[in-house]
């Protein structure tokens, strides 16, 4: 890919993602913050498209925009109204310090890393990803799925109330 198109696309997506990420921080309303977060997820999916990793872009949309954001929205809605304000709290200085430290680490890594340019574009087709997941990386893949299943069962066990248990025992 060469020409002006990818460059314009990159800067437009970068602006979109960064503005949305800033919006997450400055918006006082938690619901608006989540919506900004979704926009920044979409922007990152756009970066994956620019890198010709379209499967990753689709996965980003399915998982982050389709599932995780919706879960965050639910969490925001189901918490009491007092928890909905995104204003200053007592942990603000600590959080700011942590953010600065994290940014420093990231900048250090970005400037220190040896960014080699690959000459041949890697095979990022769906078939190659599937082969890799079920061939070389099959153990981490299975461990991740077992972990997710355990988390699912655990979450269901946690949210069951004694009344529901009693109801089931009755039936």
């Amino acid at each position: 890919m060469n020409g002006a198109g990818p460059v314009i696309g990159f800067w437009a997506l970068a602006a979109l993602t960064l503005v949305a990420a800033g919006g997450v921080m400055v918006s006082r309303n938690l619901f608006h913050a989540v919506l900004f977060l979704i926009v920044s997820f979409v922007g990152i999916a756009g970066f994956f498209v620019l890198l010709s990793a379209e499967f990753l872009a689709m996965a980003q949309i399915v998982i982050y925009v389709g599932a995780i954001s919706v879960l965050i929205l639910f969490a925001v809605l189901l918490t009491p109204r007092a928890g909905r304000d995104n204003g200053e709290t007592a942990v603000f200085p600590a959080a700011a310090l942590l953010a600065v430290a994290l940014a420093a680490v990231f900048l250090f890594v970005i400037y220190d890393a040896d960014w080699a340019t690959i000459t041949s574009s890697p095979d990022v087709s769906v078939q190659a990803i599937g082969d890799a997941l079920l061939d070389i990386w099959v153990v981490p893949f299975e461990i991740a799925s077992v972990l997710l299943t355990a988390a699912l069962v655990g979450a269901i066990m946690l949210v069951r109330t004694p009344e529901e248990e009693a109801e089931d025992a009755l039936a």
Binding site: F55, M58, V126
Partner: peptide, 13 residues
């Protein structure tokens, strides 16, 4: 090539 996933992803929006 991954049109099916595209369809599922976009229809979730």
């Amino acid at each position: 090539p991954s049109a099916l996933i595209y369809f599922i992803a976009v229809s979730g929006l």
